[in-house]
Amino acid sequence: MPGGLVALLDDIAAMAKLSAASLDDVAGAAGRAGAKAAGVVIDDTAVTPTYVTGLSPARELPIIWKIAKGSLRNKLLFLLPAALVLSALAPWAITPILMLGGAYLSFEGAEKIIAALTGGHHGDAAATISDPKELEDRQVAGAVRTDLILSGEIMAIALGELGGETLLNQAIALAVVAVAITAGVYGVVALIVKMDDIGLHLAERPATRALGRGLVAAMPRVLAALSVIGTAAMLWVGGGIILHGLEAFGLDTLPHALHDAAHHVAAGLGALGGVAGWLITAAASALIGLALGAAIVGLLHLVPRKH
């Protein structure tokens, strides 16, 4: 089994299963799963701040709140019922759905890279909107749409380990995991977005002036770095899901080759072996995601567009 991302996803799934084992412990166990799930949706955490860039600072937190509510609505009103239906009627469909989501994330990441290399500008349509409310609504809709894919991945991963539980236990476990993930991720996003305001507040006090000014000066670079990290994470997550899906279908030649390569490198590096092995599997997952995403972009460009 591929390491890195897959191990983390399996850990989340195991925690979700544990949460359903006892209704008395469901909140605590699912809360721990949600905390780890923040790592899975690192691309959501990294990309979301870009949706409020250029908008009024006074609207930053309200916009993030709207996106968080949209994320929770995705999970509880759409994905949770769909997950329960899948569990009852078509459990075999969970892995293909995960792989479709992985392919979409790979496409999104590859499209951003191709646009940057070719001078294209992903999202120019939003830049032409002059009405602040219309722009805000568009940004929120885009963020919630991206979140839907990631939320679907997390819910499907958790559901995959809850097959032996009752429908009620599945519903409770998935609901608690959904709330924990949303609170954790968008709490971090809110902190990132308001970091410059925190810096300005600290800069007003002599004792913390240097720290405050440093935060304000660093934020443009932090946001730029987050955009890069978000794109890389889309490819990493997407490629990792594809590898995991291939292994589930018995097509394990490539996953096993990557696992063996990472294990071989790790064995020769002693204390640093674990980190090196993880980096190899993460980088390989990202490259596979990039290759798949670029292929999808190329295929879509061959499809005639209506004018």
Rank of each mutant, 00 (worst) to 15 (best):
L61A: 09
I229N: 00
P132E: 01
I172L: 10
G268V: 02
A125I: 04
L89D: 14
I129G: 01
D197P: 00
I172M: 12
V26L: 14
V40H: 01
A20N: 03
M1W: 10
D196F: 04
A267L: 15
A266H: 01
A21I: 13
G160S: 14
T231N: 02
L211A: 09
V140C: 06
L79F: 15
L148W: 09
L258C: 06
T50K: 06
L235H: 03
P81E: 09
A203K: 03
V85S: 11
H201F: 04
A286C: 05
A30E: 13
L117A: 10
S56C: 04
A37K: 08
L223E: 09
T166W: 10
M15N: 14
A7G: 06
L269D: 00
T166F: 08
K112F: 04
S227F: 15
T95L: 12
T208Q: 06
S151L: 08
I229C: 01
A21S: 14
R32V: 03
G212W: 08
T146P: 02
I94N: 02
L251Q: 13
D131K: 07
K194F: 05
A218Y: 13
A37F: 02
A38S: 06
L76W: 07
L299Q: 10
K69Q: 13
A261P: 10
I288T: 04
L200G: 11
V228L: 13
K194Y: 08
G101P: 05
A173H: 05
M195F: 06
H259F: 05
A190D: 07
A20G: 09
E204A: 11
L84M: 10
G164S: 11
L226N: 08
A93T: 12
D260L: 00
L302V: 09
L98Q: 12
G142W: 09
I67T: 00
K75W: 10
G101N: 07
Y186H: 15
V176K: 13
R138P: 02
G270Y: 14
L9R: 11
A233G: 09
G250A: 02
V85W: 11
I67N: 00
W236V: 08
D10E: 09
T208I: 03
A141L: 12
K112L: 06
H301S: 14
A141F: 13
A141T: 08
V179G: 09
L202T: 00
D260R: 00
M1Y: 12
S106Q: 01
E165N: 15
L246K: 03
K306E: 07
G240L: 01
G245I: 02
L235E: 01
L77M: 15
L235M: 06
D196E: 12
G163E: 15
L258A: 07
A68Q: 15
V47M: 04
A175F: 11
E136G: 11
L223N: 11
A33Y: 01
A110H: 02
A183L: 13
I97R: 07
L258W: 08
L98D: 02
L8P: 01
